[in-house]
Amino acid sequence: MRRLELVGWTAVAIVLSALAIPWFLWGNATTVVGLPLWLWWHVGWMLLAAVVFHYFARRAWGIGIETDGGAIGGESP
């Protein structure tokens, strides 16, 4: 179970890194309220990353690192 959780969080980390730059908007020059659309994506993505990091810190902090078990999950931050 814990191993599955670790794999899941690793996947989240990779996705967060992979899409911080919106590759699918390559060459796109659309602007919205004076800023390029790709910049808006990036700003939104960073906010999403902060939310995900916050959730990780509350729920899964210690995973893959702490060794004496029981420390992850229900503990309050």
Binding site: A13, S17, P36, L39, M46, F53, F56, W61, I65
Partner: peptide, 26 residues
């Protein structure tokens, strides 16, 4: 060009933050 925002954002905001946990917390 302003793409530098993206490079720095990925570098510091995401990659370094992940290392903050993976290297830093350990």
């Amino acid at each position: 060009g302003p793409e530098w925002v993206l490079v720095m954002g990925l570098m510091d905001g995401i990659i370094f933050a992940i290392l903050w946990y993976v290297v830093g917390y350990k």
